[in-house]
Design a protein around this nucleic acid. Structure first.
Lengths: 197, 197
DNA sequence: CGTTATGTAAACAGGTCTGTGTTCTTAAGC
DNA sequence: GCTTAAGAACACAGACCTGTTTACATAACG
């Protein structure tokens, strides 16, 4: 009976259902990425999300909370499509982390941390948590691959990812192949020839 | 007779000499670093520089030009105290690039590129030039050290520097030791045992 | 002494930002 | 059909930002 999901909009352009929050977050992902956080005003964002400002501020206490939520929704499962690939060996999974689609302009976590410029900001804190989670996941996979010091290798590979992201942004040129080449050297050095696969 | 350098200020608090421009740039270095570029207004900056806004806008066409000049004045000789150290072997010089004072919070070039968010901005263009210059200097030193592929090694080490800077910023923890460890591995791999020193 | 830069001080213009209040409209559910 | 809650539309407040303008002061130099 109930079954009212996706009823979207009425004849006058009215939008109901629970779409407002999702539309706001979706517009945030696009605009924050394209223009940056500070250069995207709430007005513009609400227009893009087809939501009134009043509604936006009923869903989010303020822009700060929205930014934090934007980051949180960004990658809820930490590098999906990399660590989940059971068809790859652990070693291949470590390298797969550097095969990112070229459409990705910049790691949003670094962007947020730099733009907000306040380590205490909720979004900055989440960016920290996320980066630690990535390093931990890499370390787990490194352990699985038989690395001598998986924590160290995980931290090293995480640094390579961040370096590639930052350098890609500054130079406007894809730096991930370089990072992948370094990763290959580190992985070969850290994993005994007889281990893993 | 002339000899009027450093006459600084008159009895009424008036400041003359050619200090205004330098004071503005000096205040920029401090404030842009502490608060970021976008969060530092020209008003605040002029107060800190003890300069009227009128004067500031006579020296710089606008904030954009000031930001570009701020970056340009930052490190005119590209990593001073690293490439100049003739007391070190080329190999040691490559590693010395990772021994940065812990007081340095973040590479201002990355910060500017992210904050300004416009690759066409003069400051973004200079940041690109600077990063390329660093990589070239590293490549030169790598060649001097006898590396097999000095261009590649230079690019790799530059990526490590940027990775350490970005990661230090996001995590609020010094990532340069990790980068130095990776650098040591790369250098050892790229330089034949018999070359250099 | 008079002229001329150079600078201060402070108001102002026009814009954008976050966030709120106010009124009207309409869908959902009984 | 009636009630209720969610949202649209829109003006507005208050702050801050970049950049300009006006009026005044003083140091250097002839």
């Amino acid at each position: 009976m109930g079954l009212m999901t996706e009823l979207e909009k009425g004849p006058t352009g009215r939008r109901r259902g629970r779409g407002a929050r999702e539309r706001i977050l979706s517009a945030s992902q696009q605009l924050f990425r394209e223009q940056g956080i500070n250069r995207t005003g709430m007005d513009q964002l609400c227009v893009a999300a087809q939501v009134s400002k009043r509604t936006a501020y009923q869903h989010f206490a303020g822009k700060d909370e929205l930014v934090a939520e934007y980051l949180r929704r960004f990658d809820p499962s930490v590098l999906p499509g990399v660590f989940d690939r059971t068809d790859l060996t652990p070693r291949e999974r470590l390298l797969a982390a550097f095969d990112i689609p070229p459409a990705t302009p910049l790691c949003p976590y670094i962007g947020a941390a730099v733009e907000l410029h306040d380590p205490q900001h909720p979004a900055s804190q989440y960016a920290r948590d996320y980066k630690k989670a990535v390093a931990a996941r890499l370390a787990d996979t490194a352990r699985e691959a038989g690395a001598v010091d998986p924590e160290q290798l995980g931290e090293q590979l995480a640094l390579l990812l961040d370096g590639a992201a930052a350098r890609t942004r500054v130079l406007n040129a894809d730096a991930f192949p370089t990072a992948a080449a370094i990763a290959a050297v580190l992985i070969d050095n850290a994993i005994p020839a007889t281990a893993g696969d």
